[in-house]
Amino acid sequence: MEVLQLFISGISQGCVYGLIALGFVLIYKATEMVNFAQGDIMMLGAYVAITFINIWDWPFYWAFPATVLVMAAVGVVLERVLLRPMIGEPHFAVLMLTIGLGFVLRAAAGAIWGNEPRALQTPYVGEVLRLGEAVIGYENLAIIIGTTVLCFLMWVFFRFTRVGIAMQAASQNQLAAFYVGIPVKRMYSLVWALSAAIAAVAGILTAPVSLVDPLIGFVGIKAFAAAIVGGFGSMPGAIIGGLLIGVVEQFAGLYLPPGFADMSAYVLLLVMLVIRPQGLFATMQKKKV
C-alpha cells in the first residue's frame, strides 16, 4: 500500500513540475525563447495569493481567480517591457535576461514579503481522503484535480478556439501568420499571459503543501528537466515529463540512499538524453521563421 501512497504523492508533486514545464514549453514554442524565470513567476504568484488571502483576508475562491488575472497581467508587462525589445537579439542574451529576471524577482520577493517561509491559508488544509490504506491530503488532491482541469481547459483552448488555433498557427509558421493578418506580436503577449497564469495556478496549488519562500522558484530547474524529458515543445510531453519526474523522485527517496531523491530528476534527464534525445514526445515540427 505504501507503493500507492508514494505514487499519489509523486503524481501530485509531478503535477506542479508539469505545470511549470508547460509554461516553459508554451513560451518556447511561440517565441523560441527559454524563460528561465518561469519558476520564480510561480513563486510570485504564490506570494500574490498570500497577500490576498493571508494579509488582506479575501475569500479563497475570489483570491484564486484574482491572483491568476494579476499574474497574467504581469506576464504581459514582462513581455512588452523586457522581451519584445529583445526580438532578433541572440538567444543567449534572452536567456541571460530571464535568468537575471529570476534574481530580481527573488530579491524583490524577499524585500517585500521577507525570507521566512509562509503557509498559504486554504479552506481545505488538513482534510484527507482515504483510499483503502492510502491517505491523500486534500491539498494534494487539489493539485491533481486542478492540474487535470487546467490541462483540459488548455486543450479546449488550443484545439477549438479561434485565438488558440491562431496561436498554434503563429508558432508553426510565423511568416505565414503575419501574412494572413494574425497579430503575431499580440499573440506573444498572450502566450506570456497564459504561461504566467499557469505558473500562478501552480503556485497557489503547491503553496499549502510546500511552504512559500522566495526560493521555491528553484523547482523550475526540475520542471525544466521535465520539459526536456517530455520533448521540449510538446505540451502533453511537459505534463507527462513532470509526472514521471515526480513519481521517480518519490520512489528514489524510499529505495535509494538519502540524497538520491533530489538527484533522480537529473539522472532521469541524462538517461533520457542518451536513449531518446528527442524526448518522449518528439516534436517533428521544424520552425520556419
Partner: peptide, 10 residues
C-alpha cells in the same frame, strides 16, 4: 509567399 507556406500541423 514562395514555397507554399501553409500551417503544417493545422
Amino acid at each position: 509567399p514562395e514555397g507554399r507556406e501553409v500551417f503544417p500541423f493545422l
